[in-house]
Design a protein around this nucleic acid. Sequence first.
DNA 1: CATGAATGAGCTTTCATTCAT
DNA 2: GATGAATGAAAGCTCATTCAT
Lengths: 202, 202, 202, 202
Amino acid sequence: MTRRETLLDAAIALFAEKGYNGTSTSEIVEKAGVAQGTLFYHFKNKEGMLLTILENILNEYLQDMEEVASVTQSGLMTVENLIRCSTHFRQTRSLELLVLMRDFPADLIKPDSPQMMFIIEFFKRFYDLFKNAIDRGQKDGSIRKISSEKYTHILLGMLSGMDRHILLGPLPTPALTEEIVSFCCSALSPPGIDPVSHERRS
Amino acid sequence: MTRRETLLDAAIALFAEKGYNGTSTSEIVEKAGVAQGTLFYHFKNKEGMLLTILENILNEYLQDMEEVASVTQSGLMTVENLIRCSTHFRQTRSLELLVLMRDFPADLIKPDSPQMMFIIEFFKRFYDLFKNAIDRGQKDGSIRKISSEKYTHILLGMLSGMDRHILLGPLPTPALTEEIVSFCCSALSPPGIDPVSHERRS
Amino acid sequence: MTRRETLLDAAIALFAEKGYNGTSTSEIVEKAGVAQGTLFYHFKNKEGMLLTILENILNEYLQDMEEVASVTQSGLMTVENLIRCSTHFRQTRSLELLVLMRDFPADLIKPDSPQMMFIIEFFKRFYDLFKNAIDRGQKDGSIRKISSEKYTHILLGMLSGMDRHILLGPLPTPALTEEIVSFCCSALSPPGIDPVSHERRS
Amino acid sequence: MTRRETLLDAAIALFAEKGYNGTSTSEIVEKAGVAQGTLFYHFKNKEGMLLTILENILNEYLQDMEEVASVTQSGLMTVENLIRCSTHFRQTRSLELLVLMRDFPADLIKPDSPQMMFIIEFFKRFYDLFKNAIDRGQKDGSIRKISSEKYTHILLGMLSGMDRHILLGPLPTPALTEEIVSFCCSALSPPGIDPVSHERRS
DNA sequence: CATGAATGAGCTTTCATTCAT
DNA sequence: GATGAATGAAAGCTCATTCAT
């Protein structure tokens, strides 16, 4: 593993545990076992580390999600599987996701900065994934007639909220994946049709 | 307005805008128009200000919610109105809520500290509010048979997620209150019964 | 007890325990159960409290010692009894003596200030007490021929050193009074004459 | 001279002159001609500087004394030479000794801290040095039959008291070394034997 | 006499960053 | 590529003191 990667791993662990502001560069280099100067040789500054971490995780997140969305199936099934993918991602990449949740939106990401542009761009593509799935579901009859814009916002808010609740909340939380899927499908399925997709699955 | 209140208001505005860590005590006293020492006369330290703000907002939040829950009605209606109350609170107290969302769980609130006890206590009562409503709904037939524990976690995660998405998210968001209510009611109502309670309301 | 006395007592206890610099005026007023302003009503400032305490203790100390010295007896006996008096004073007024030992010479007592004049005046009288006794002892034959100036300095240094060693030293110390007396008398008695004055006493 | 040494020298001079509490870190770095941060790069904190100074001086002090004690000679001669060594140390290292005398026992050295352990350990070894010499002197007949424990305490208290009296006292003091030696030897020698060892010396 | 809210200068300390090697 | 000594701005906080009541 290169020194750069060692540094990133150390930063991810520390940012996840103590937050960006709660972590000093000294702690990072100590945990990584390199000298102070090395950090600033490989990264422009401390903020550069955070941005690198966030961009990496967001790109991988989006890639996984877009792959799921590219499979041909009903709109509702796409939404279901996006939810499952998102949950799975949270379970496998909880450390990086903690960094994201703790420190974004961070004070250090200035409005109109390239970094903010990147973040907004990411959120838009994330938004589009769900929006397109819902639109398709309304055409193929798997999703009831509701405002796809508004319901997309609800799904986005809900999913990130669940991640936060589970990873950062003060209350111990049971496994919830399929309940979240059911919850959303009940709300999205056309009236009278009871979604049992998660039973069909397995 | 006393100096203490002036200071709290200044801190709320700045914490909401720039976060706790991004705000210096100098900025607070400058905005409040008092001397540095005055802050530390009225509060133990900077963290004491944050705690005061958080305790105030959480207490008022809980009070509003418990008042809503105390009205006799069906379990589902109670859930609906809790959601509306929560949304209304977000709209009227967005500044304080921003402070809460930005800076909790903060690294500065140590596990097992009295502060953390207070926060956990608050979350438990918040949890119980929804849990009791769902349990009652399952008895009175207004809510389908699901795990009330799990669905309570989903509602909590969802509501805080929506607050964050709307108040802190990088995407502009339309008004969503009744859609959130519908979304949840669809997921909670017994199968086959389409919830239209929010139309009945008005 | 007047508020002024209450404040002095609180200050003595705290200065003895934590030193002048380690004690804040807030602590003093809290322990005394009065308001901040009261301290500054009764004393010019914090330093004024210390000076008052030091002057009181030094005056009483000197008074006791001068009374002992005024009794007609041999020079050596006077020295002996001065030592015993000093020791007794340490045992009965250890708190005030701790204040003196911890905080004098304090940085706050400026050279050539009236306070310093007072302190120097005190030391001179203290010095004279021993010096006169030794001089008298050399005349009456109870004390050997040595430099009374130098031996006075030795006695002064020794006595204050023993006080410090016993009251502030890190090592537990046994009762030493008569040994100190013997030690000094052996050094002061004319050669060949073994002092047993502390046996004669009792 | 390294920056670390420069800083230590500046601190010694200032602590000796104005005391630990009376000296600000700004003064130290100014006197040393380095930046504020440099102090905290080389030392954990201000207290760390004091501890470093104290440990250095105590170690050297003890080393000198133990070297003196290791020379084979009568018990009384050992005591004499320990006194001379102590006096010589005070004369050559008065600055560091002033720091020690002004600021120890300092409120900042917590009971049971490693620092306090170190200090107590030092005092014990210092104590043993004199105790062993007296015990040996009682065996070889050069020292009278007295409690070696008690007389050791007296010697320790006396020597530190003389240091304080001479270095910190408000009265000008003449040279006293041989008088202190005589004083102690008279008190320690067996009755009837007049010690003139300091004349034999030279 | 007594109060206590208010002050602000000054303190110690942290930490991201630089740069000569 | 890598180092780590050095930096200095900025932070949170303490505390003796003042003064209107």
